[in-house]
């Protein structure tokens, strides 16, 4: 992506969430700000963790927050560069509602030359009553930084 084409999550998310693991999960774009992105994880019968309770498993929520984190980093930096998750912590604050969708909002609050720091919440519509909180560190996996102008 050229330097004058700023990363736009609203336009990029549909391309990044319609295939592979994110596509299998059915992640969709909801909203974004200068340093945050919110995605939706629609409820689906084959994503539950306990069949009898019809509650989304914890795994899909991790994937939701991982993807929202990546988009938040690209949104804050304005550049779509390859990144890898280094460390991701998820606190499961409560179970999601049966047959309920979950929304994941991640905020990139700090970037260095090679690292990006993210926090976020997974919620069901009320940001003050989250299902989970996350904290993550991501690393740039760009090629030799000396080859990137200004890198």
């Amino acid at each position: 992506m050229s330097a004058d084409a700023e990363f736009d999550p609203a336009r990029a998310a549909p391309f990044l969430t319609t295939h592979s693991h994110n596509g299998w999960l059915g992640l969709t774009y909801r909203d974004h700000g200068a340093d945050w992105v919110e995605l939706a994880l629609p409820w689906r019968a084959d994503l539950v963790g306990e069949e009898e309770r019809e509650v989304l498993a914890s795994g899909p929520i991790v994937s939701l927050m991982d993807m929202a984190s990546g988009l938040a980093i690209w949104t804050r930096t304005g550049k779509f560069t390859p990144i890898a998750t280094l460390d991701l912590r998820v606190d499961y604050l409560r179970a999601a509602a049966p047959r309920g969708s979950v929304f994941g909002r991640a905020t990139c609050y700090r970037t260095t030359r090679s690292a990006a720091f993210v926090h976020g919440i997974a919620h069901e519509g009320d940001m003050d009553d989250p299902v989970a909180r996350i904290q993550g560190v991501f690393m740039s996996i760009a090629t030799d930084p000396r080859s990137i102008p200004g890198g």
Binding site: H19, S20, H21, W24, A57, G59, P60, V62, S63
Partner: peptide
Amino acid sequence: SDAVQGRPGALHGGALSGLLET
């Protein structure tokens, strides 16, 4: 498989987390 792929040719971190939890 496609269901666990993140970047082209790489395992998705979320899917890997799901395997670890399982």
